[in-house]
Design a binder for these strands. Structure first.
Lengths: 341, 341
DNA sequence: TTGTAGGCGTTATCAT
DNA sequence: ATGATAACGCCTACAA
């Protein structure tokens, strides 16, 4: 009976281990471990004994030890630019739900739209030996690319599209969204277009898509207001104010998000401008409120839950060695015409 | 040179360990470990050598092993009923930010407003040996209380108030919120009150507060519509519809959230009811849009970021052995009068 | 179906 | 300031 506590553990009783359960059940630790991880490999009686012993000892498995030994952590790290963002939050919720469904826990980190911060975060989370990683977007620092590739972990990039992802991807083409919006506005006969745009990378790509297609149609972009993140309703209001106060003439504004669009609509109402007669407003995202505002907001709908669910499933499948049908999944988008255009 | 791979590891190179770094640097693993965790205990030259060796080997620490040995995981588990909820999401964002600031990672789990699910989740997360836990609300299953108390982990309950928390708490009194709302509505002279209320526990307590105080003032509650979670704008609309279509007469509706209130206001507008002249509408939460809608929404403001920041700091402080001034923190609330009442 | 032996990668402790 | 040793609690591999 040699003392086992080399660690300082003043007064506290150690929490029970597999060994304690095994002793209680009159079995070996290995059998208890098996019972927990592969119950079908032990006979019914053993299973009973172990269950009892677990209850009577109050055993709580230690996944740090388990993960260390098995090299599987059942942990997925998720990196998003921002949690409290109407678009990402639904994806995160879906990720959390579906990962839980598949038996994984979610480590959630916020990169704040910065590739440098993202790189730091990725280094840090690799220390936890996650079984997989979800990254937002496809713009990463070279350092982080190197690190994560050499980790050989399953990775899913979300919310963007490229034929050459780090590993797997679920998203859509922001450029095509921009193209489609511009086509649509042209089709509706709007001639002079203003933009209210948030300063984030993916939005910038949508903007490029808009501008390219407007150009093709020889349409004028009157002016573009850039608003710092996060894009709020008030910034939509002040964005439209700036456009108007600068004396620009335009018959439509395209906004990088529904939130900005709602702000613009409110500001228009305040100034007695009728939407869409005097000014059309186009959004992006199809948020909850967009169909209910007066006028309702024309927008582009993204299935944000699908992004999360697919990402979770692709990761789980790959981790579990299942064959994947596709490694790059374009979930597309849909332009929804409403009253504001 | 005995072979070290008893584990199956087909073809892959093992990721470098402390020992590899140590060999490269001509030091012992222990010194490398020290360099990483207590750099001030090693001399400058050693620090240099270790840094180089880490870069040249591409070493990534293994926190599973580290946590197992040190009994510290630098991991905080957070349990919320729902992530994509306008109220919680800001708290989660604040938690994430502040925990990162303090050197912790956040494991985020969703309980879906169910104490049973919460109990399951807590059991599961304890397996990861977090250094602390954040729980939403004060209603827990007896099982889970027993389990988490016997774990002796630092715990912060958030978004509610009780003099007897499991451990620590940051929140406010939902009952007092209800009282204050009712007082206010009485003071404004409203006589017949309708309710549109989401089915969640904390909202139920606010409702009790409202009803109690309305009673004191001998005010009538005309009718109450119960809407299932999640509370959306459309449910606010249909909630008001139900109240009106049932033929109830009332001069004000109190809603359990700003989202429902916005829905009610939109429905009122559709029916040609003027807010607040024909019908006053009261919300809860002071969401981003509430001050911008037309009319703007009277509501109760909660500092949802503070909840997250304080919870993160209280946990970190306790984990790090710092003295806490208070273990129960009431962050209060503020009634904000706007145009809708 | 169950058990034995040894290692997973790190840190606490004590010695130098 | 650095190192040797023995855990930490579990799982893989193999033996019985």
């Amino acid at each position: 009976m040699k003392a086992k506590n080399t660690h300082k553990n003043p007064g506290k009783v150690k929490s029970p281990t597999l060994e304690d359960v095994a002793r209680q059940a009159g079995l070996s630790p290995m059998t208890v471990s098996r019972t927990l991880n592969n119950p079908h490999l032990v006979r019914a009686l053993t299973l009973e004994k172990v269950k009892e012993a677990i209850v009577s000892t109050g055993y709580i498995p230690n996944l740090l030890a388990g993960g260390l030994a098995s090299r599987r952590s059942k942990l997925i790290a998720v990196v998003v630019p921002q949690i409290n963002n109407n678009m990402f939050v639904d994806t995160v919720q879906a990720l959390s739900d579906q990962l839980a469904e598949r038996g994984y826990h979610m480590l959630l980190c916020v990169s704040g739209y910065s590739p440098e911060r993202e790189a730091e975060i990725v280094s840090a989370i690799l220390s936890r030996r996650p079984d997989g990683v979800v990254l937002t977007g496809i713009q990463h620092s070279p350092d982080m690319k190197r690190i994560i590739l050499s980790s050989e972990l399953p990775v899913v990039e979300i919310w963007d599209l490229t034929p050459t992802p780090l590993d797997m991807l679920v998203g859509f083409s922001h450029e095509k969204v921009g193209n489609k919006i511009a086509h649509y506005m042209h089709g509706k006969g709007y001639k002079k277009i203003g933009l209210i745009w948030a300063e984030d990378n993916r939005a910038a790509v949508r903007k490029k898509g808009v501008l390219d297609t407007l150009d093709e149609h020889k349409l004028k972009t009157v002016a573009s207001i850039s608003v710092p993140l996060p894009a709020t309703l008030s910034k939509g209001r002040s964005g439209l104010s700036q456009l108007l106060d600068a004396g620009h003439e335009f018959d439509a504004v395209i906004c990088s998000s529904d939130t900005l669009a709602q702000g613009a609509i409110i500001e228009a109402a305040h100034r007695g401008l009728r939407v869409p007669q005097d000014l059309a407003v186009m959004g992006f995202g199809d948020l909850d409120f967009s169909q209910h505002t007066v006028p309702s907001i024309s927008t582009v709908q993204i299935d944000r839950w699908r992004v999360g669910i697919d990402a979770a499933n692709m990761l789980s499948d790959k981790i579990e060695g299942k064959k994947l049908n596709d490694t790059v999944r374009d979930i597309g988008f849909e332009l929804i015409e409403r009253e504001s255009t």
